[in-house]
């Protein structure tokens, strides 16, 4: 995950209201989903950025998750996500999230 972005998110979280925050991802692959989810829950796995060793523990969801979709107005979801639901590797992305959550307890 981009180092500058790690810093920006860290500053935002430290500025307060952390308990109200939730992350929604639009990552295209299982690999990129895992990287971002790990970074924002357990800390930067590459140990290169400001979040190295900083477990923010933010709740992280992906826009393709059925539980997220259920919260969104159906016509908006159809327009903005539409065919991407079956074009992107949804099963792989779901599995990456499951593994990350199992590892972090979030």
């Amino acid at each position: 995950m981009d180092l500058e972005e790690q810093g920006a998110i860290q500053r935002l979280v430290e500025s307060g209201q952390r308990d109200r925050m939730v992350v929604v991802l639009g990552t295209p692959t299982a690999g990129s989903t895992r990287m971002v989810a790990l970074t924002l829950t357990q800390g930067d796995p590459s140990y290169a950025g400001p979040l190295a060793g900083v477990p923010l523990g933010l709740p992280v969801y992906h826009i393709l998750e059925d539980e997220v979709k259920a919260a969104i107005a159906a016509e908006v979801y159809e327009e903005e996500i539409g065919p991407l639901e079956f074009v992107l590797d949804k099963p792989g992305i779901m599995e990456a999230l499951r593994q990350t959550r199992a590892g972090s307890g979030v």
Partner: peptide, 13 residues
């Protein structure tokens, strides 16, 4: 680098 296969994704769309 975890950036996926860009042309393949475009063709799928």
């Amino acid at each position: 680098a975890g950036s996926g296969n860009v042309p393949a994704a475009n063709y799928q769309v």
